[in-house]
Amino acid sequence: MRIEFLDPFVKGAFAVLSQVIADTPERGALAIRSNTFTSQQVTIMAGVNGDVEGTALYGMSLITAQKIASAMMCTEGAQMDDMAWSAISELGNMITGNATRLLYDAGFESDITPPTVLRGSNIEISTKSPTLVVPINTKFGQIEINVAIAETCKMAKAA
């Protein structure tokens, strides 16, 4: 896992959140985990494959998810129904899409897989590489970005 693979996801999150919830988040301290667990009540999981492969997780509390979904749906106090979960899933899709664009600009071409929303903490996620973790603080609460992405063999050999 190269540290520069984390930045596109953080920048992607900033870009998307500034548009969908009109907020400029603050970046927290970086951490590394050898095992990947969902540490929050809600986790959006999106896959990346291509020149780099792995998983991005965006964790948040249920309250944060509810507030973000409400903002995305232009309503107040939205119920976490199918529509709200779909909005949260789409948030992960847009952040990961932004990140892969930045990875492309850095020379790593990759696609994203449709995101999955996991509910519940302490679920272990199998990843091929250690996970870099950075929390970002938004006006609706914290989102924890977990990125476990590594170059594929083809790219590593070419380097």
Binding site: T96, G97, N98, T100, R101, L102, L103, Y104, D111
Partner: peptide
């Protein structure tokens, strides 16, 4: 589409 899928 989401940004990042330029090849697609």
């Amino acid at each position: 589409t989401a940004l990042g899928q330029q090849n697609m």
